[in-house]
Amino acid sequence: MLVIQDLHVYYGAIRALDGISIEVKEGEIVTMIGANGAGKSTTMRTLSGLVRPRSGAVMFEGKALHLLPAHEIVALGISQSPEGRRVFANMSVRENLELGGYVHYKKKAQIAEDMDRAFTLFPRLKEREAQLAGTLSGGEQQMLAIGRALMSRPRLLLLDEPSLGLAPFLVQTIFQIIRDINKTGVTILLVEQNANQALRVAHRGYVLETGRVVLADTAANLLSNDEVRQAYLGE
């Protein structure tokens, strides 16, 4: 479904990605783990068209994403819940969700249906529908960011650090929701600091270090890999 080939990305003179190749198949949950600065978020930003690669390619169902502007990528069925949530703080929860469905603005019925679905998935959001997103707690903002990303009906959902800064019980909830979303047929690419949880929910995983893929395997194998356990699971 998604093939990343030998991606090189620079921020000015600084190299962020040094030839990353990753594949995501339809229906999978794939996770990228790695330390700060390994290039996980840069990969996500490149996938969504916020950053242009210097070389390499990103193919989504045969289309070259790295040549498309960000809004067309969303229209193709890829949406992202970015790191740090990035909800529109001065808009209501409802308006945030509406903006999530921006590309489907003509399909009023679909937007209403999707909004109901988001509220079923995250009942807390329903309670706070009219509240400004900036006044939500961190966990609620995360739910909003994920709910908002689902509003465009993505076939590939990019989740960047969905558990960052959340209370432990909420982390469990978020990962359960990721599983649920995946079961509805949405393919997921997940970036996580919480490698343990990420590998438990994912089918396959990639380990990134300083802009390169150093390990690629099934999630189960990575979980039992000694190097991974030492470096990322703190054992």
Binding site: R45, S48, G49, L50, A70, H71, V74, A75, S79, Q80, P82, R86, V87, F88, A89, N90, M91, E95, E98, L99, G100, Y102, V103, R148, A149, S152
Partner: peptide
């Protein structure tokens, strides 16, 4: 609404497909 979204966070606005 798109204007307000851009004004708050242009990258997030792009991620909405704006």
């Amino acid at each position: 609404k798109a204007m307000r979204a851009i004004s708050h966070d242009i990258d997030a606005a792009k991620l909405m497909g704006i």
